[in-house]
């Protein structure tokens, strides 16, 4: 049986710096996976290998394999644009485009050359509903997205992803610019989205990992120290280093 995502012996170098060391990770269907670890441990870098966002950075070299539904996304024949439609990403700081609310959500559709206006409007509404924004924003669809408060901007960025119906959603510390109440809303939304999507979230907030994730990976200095059920990681860590981190002795 093929797994949704199967990372095999992945190494990544920024020029000389060895940022990911022989990482292995298997992700099944419809789970929330959290990646935790101290700053600079490579968790964001690992996340960005899954939709090949690291390709945008100069001096990055990658060895190993990342399979998505059994296909290695680092194969030379891989269609990057298709890949990124299947594996969407939410960033640390909300990054809506300098366009209206509805044009932000429709962005992925326009990229895919969608022309049917009625259909686009439908998808925009559906995506905003799924992101819990429809009631708040239905009268502001033509307002500039950058005028919205940050917590709405971040949910708009999620709505923007949902419009292209990705299979996997990568989230790179999506709540680090948000207050606790906004964070809670995003977490509720993640649990809701889990029914239809695979979510991988990078977080430096261990409580968040414990609250929302089914599986959890602890990374340190570019290595995947432990990858297991979240309940196991937090109650019964196998590795001494994981235990030190989750009990707050370090990190």
């Amino acid at each position: 049986m093929t797994h949704k995502i199967d990372i095999k012996n992945l190494n990544l170098y920024y020029d000389e710096f060895h940022a990911l060391k022989s990482v292995n990770m298997v992700v099944g269907e419809k789970n929330i996976i959290a990646l935790i670890g101290p700053s600079g441990c490579g968790k964001s870098t690992l996340l960005r290998t899954i939709n090949r966002m690291n390709d945008l950075i100069e001096g990055v070299r990658i060895t190993g394999e990342v399979f998505l539904d059994g296909n290695n996304i680092y194969d030379p024949g891989m269609d990057l644009y298709e890949l990124r439609k299947r594996v969407g990403m939410v960033f640390q700081r909300p990054n809506p485009f300098a366009k209206s609310v509805s044009e932000n959500v429709a962005f992925g559709l326009r990229v895919a050359q969608f022309k049917n206006k009625k259909k686009i409007a439908e998808i925009v509404e559906r995506s905003l509903r799924a992101a819990g924004l429809w009631d708040e924003l239905k009268d502001k669809l033509n307002r500039p997205a950058l005028d919205l408060p940050l917590y709405q901007q971040q949910r708009l960025c999620i709505a923007r992803l949902l419009a292209v119906e990705p299979e996997v959603i990568l989230m790179d510390e999506p709540c680090s610019a948000l207050d606790p109440i906004a964070t809670m809303k995003i977490e509720e939304m993640m649990v809701e989205l889990k029914r239809n999507y695979n979510i991988i979230i990078v977080t430096h907030n261990m409580q968040q990992a414990a609250r929302v994730s089914d599986l959890c990976g602890y990374m340190l200095l570019g290595e995947m120290i432990e990858f297991n059920k979240t309940s196991e990681i937090f109650t019964n860590p196998r590795d001494k280093r994981t235990q030190d981190y989750i009990t707050g002795r370090f990190g």
Partner: peptide, 26 residues
């Protein structure tokens, strides 16, 4: 901001789509 470009790329936009749909409007 670089994050605009990343946001567009992450939605499957090509380089040119990123420029004329995300960067130029900003």
């Amino acid at each position: 901001p670089q994050s605009y470009r990343e946001g567009a790329f992450a939605l499957g936009a090509t380089h040119w789509q990123t420029i004329h749909m995300a960067v130029l409007p900003a």
